[in-house]
Every structure is written in structure tokens, then in C-alpha cells.
């Protein structure tokens, strides 16, 4: 680890010692410019993603994010109540356009996210490796799975209604059919450990059917979430469909769980049972739908393998309503 003696510049560059990093090699290259021309790297300011823009927290607060070795990585925006409310407004505003888009269109937009992520996969691999402390192979696999997960969900957009809808043979002269419709605005907490694949596995099933969302990224491993936001922002996803907040779920989620313009909660990433119970209680105030899968409860320590299995319909079904329409038959 000695080559990792974190000089100020190296540490802020956020490149782990084990990483086969393009940034690391470029730093070496720049050092050949001579004693007075050593290139100082340009550090990124990590911000929130709300309504298609990247604002700082209105509170002006940040918190320190560390890599897997506990080395300071970046100051990350610490979302406030006001940021959460702004995100709900953005998600609500985006809902009619996104839910009204054709399923074919939504499928293409999700597929586009996969395309854009493929082009940024080296950055994502580095960030996962550094943040989760896994091997390069593991990081590569997790990014591949995350990209493929978008592709998997993209294909579902125009099949959900065929699989979950029905034509209902009622006992009378009526045409009667049921179709799934998006629930509305969903507030979610992404898993802590699996910082990219877990996050994608939470967002994709929410938005594929036309919902919009506010997602709290892994508090301890927020960097891949911000990079994902950048991929989403350049993937034809309408502003406000996905909003990503960094910060403390215990502070921000209660505002979302009690917000009357939020229709549902996904608590997949909430490990603290007391917090989950509090949020479920608050959800009752406006009869929100709550998803809290049994299989993730208490098994968050594994940074990837739990999320590697191919998903089923459950995560999509949780945020769908069944609408049934009757019409008489006659001449």
C-alpha cells in the first residue's frame, strides 16, 4: 500500500491503490511535463440530481464519503427536507408525460441508459472497486450486470400489460378488461452495500411502467449513484423521472414517507428495522403502497451476490395499480 501514501492530490483523485485506473496512469503521464508543469487534476463536485439538474443541497450541507480503505474520497451533498420536497415536485411534474409515453418509447429510453452506461463502464468499475473494496473482476461483473439489468427491464415495458392485464368474462353483456397502471411517485432507498447494481435494481422496475421516483443513494457509497445520474441525464430520460438524493435516509425519508404527493415507498435499502417501521407507519397517513422485500431484510452485508439473481415481476408489480374498465355490449 506504500505507493498509496495518500498525497493530497492522489487521495482526492479517488483512485484506489489496487485499481487499474486510467486516472492513475494519466497522472503519471502528466508528471512528465516537468517539475513546474505537473498537472493538477480537476476534482468533481458531487451534487444531487433533481428535475434533470445537478444542484447542491439547498441547505449548503455536505458530508464526507470514504473509500473502502477509509480514505477520504469526496464531499457529497447532504440532502435536506427542502431538497426532498423539490424532488417530489419534479417527480410529480414528470409523471404525466412519462406515464403517458408509449411503452415502446419508455423501453427505448431505458435501453438508452444501458448504452450510455456501457460507454462509462471503466469509470463505474473504478468507483465500485474503490468504494466497495472488491476485485477488478468483481467490479467488472457488477457493472455488466447493472447494464444488463437495464436491458432486461427495458424489454418489459411493452409486455407488462399483456402479462399482468386480463380480459374478464363477466356474467353479463359487458366488455370488461383490466390493465396495470403506474402508481405514481415512488420514494425509494437504494441498498447500502451494492452501490450500483442494487441502485439500478431499485430504479428500473419503478420507472419502466411509468412511475417517477426519488431515490436515496447508498449513504456510505454514494459515488456510483452520482455517476449513474450523469448517465441518466444524458439518456433521453425526461427531467424529473429519476431524482437521486445523497444524504442520510433516517433524516430525509420521513419527509418523503409522510409527503401527500408520494404514492409509494420502496424500502429495499432500509436495514434499520426501527426506521423501516417508522416509515411504514408514516406511509399509512396517505395509504401509500410499501415494498419491503423479505429477502433483503438483514442480508445487506453482501455487496453484490444478493442482487445478481435475475429479478421477477415482484418489484414491478409493487408499483402498479390494476384498472378495470366496463362497457356494455349492444346494438
Amino acid at each position: 500500500m506504500s505507493e498509496h501514501e495518500p498525497s493530497h492530490a492522489e487521495a482526492s483523485q479517488a483512485v484506489s491503490t489496487q485499481a487499474v485506473s486510467t486516472q492513475a496512469s494519466s497522472t503519471q503521464a502528466s508528471s512528465t511535463h516537468g517539475p513546474f508543469s505537473t498537472r493538477v487534476d480537476v476534482r468533481k463536485t458531487y451534487k444531487l440530481y433533481i428535475g434533470g439538474a445537478f444542484p447542491r443541497s439547498e441547505s449548503g450541507r455536505t458530508y464526507e464519503a470514504f473509500d473502502a480503505q477509509g480514505v477520504f474520497w469526496a464531499n457529497v451533498a447532504k440532502a435536506s427536507r427542502k431538497d426532498a420536497r423539490d424532488a417530489v415536485l419534479a417527480a410529480r411534474t414528470a409523471f404525466s408525460g412519462w406515464s403517458g409515453a408509449t411503452a415502446y418509447n419508455r423501453g427505448q429510453v431505458l435501453y438508452r441508459i444501458a448504452e450510455v452506461m456501457e460507454g462509462r463502464r471503466r469509470q463505474l468499475e473504478d468507483e465500485i472497486q474503490q468504494g466497495q473494496g472488491c476485485t477488478a473482476d468483481q467490479a467488472r461483473n457488477l457493472v455488466s450486470e447493472a447494464i444488463d439489468r437495464w436491458v432486461w427491464y427495458a424489454g418489459w415495458s411493452d409486455k407488462l400489460a399483456a402479462v399482468l392485464g386480463s380480459s374478464n368474462p363477466v356474467a353479463g353483456p359487458y366488455f370488461n378488461f383490466s390493465t396495470p397502471e403506474p402508481t405514481g411517485v415512488v420514494a425509494a432507498v437504494a441498498p447500502r452495500a451494492c452501490s450500483l447494481l442494487g441502485l439500478v435494481s431499485v430504479i428500473a422496475p419503478i420507472i419502466v411502467s411509468g412511475n417517477t421516483c426519488i431515490v436515496m443513494a447508498s449513504q456510505g457509497r454514494p459515488i456510483p449513484a452520482i455517476t449513474l445520474a450523469e448517465a441518466i441525464a444524458t439518456s433521453d430520460v425526461s427531467a424529473g423521472v429519476v431524482n437521486i438524493l445523497t444524504g442520510d435516509p433516517a433524516e430525509v425519508m420521513p419527509w418523503l414517507a409522510s409527503h401527500a404527493d408520494v404514492n409509494a415507498l420502496d424500502l429495499s435499502g432500509v436495514e434499520d428495522a426501527a426506521l423501516a417501521t417508522l416509515l411504514e407507519q408514516q406511509a399509512a397517513g396517505t395509504v401509500k403502497r410499501v415494498r419491503r422485500p423479505k429477502w433483503v431484510a438483514g442480508r445487506q452485508a453482501d455487496a453484490g451476490s444478493d442482487w445478481l439473481a435475475e429479478p421477477g415481476l415482484g418489484a414491478m408489480r409493487a408499483f402498479l395499480e390494476t384498472k378495470t374498465v366496463w362497457h356494455p355490449q349492444g346494438v
Binding site: A171, V287, R289, T322, W326
Partner: peptide, 28 residues
């Protein structure tokens, strides 16, 4: 709304899912 009656109203059938959106509840 969970049920839309077009040119009829208050029709029910065991084959037809019934239930609400939002504060009318969840499940069918």
C-alpha cells in the same frame, strides 16, 4: 380510479377485479 364504468355504473362480478387507487386502498 380502480374501476371505470363507461355507460353503466355499479356493476360487479367475481371475474372483475375491484379496488382503489390512492387513499381508496390497495390490493384487488
Amino acid at each position: 380510479a380502480g374501476v371505470v364504468w363507461a355507460n353503466t355504473f355499479n356493476r360487479f362480478d367475481p371475474a372483475s377485479p375491484f379496488g382503489g387507487y390512492r387513499e381508496s386502498g390497495f390490493g384487488r
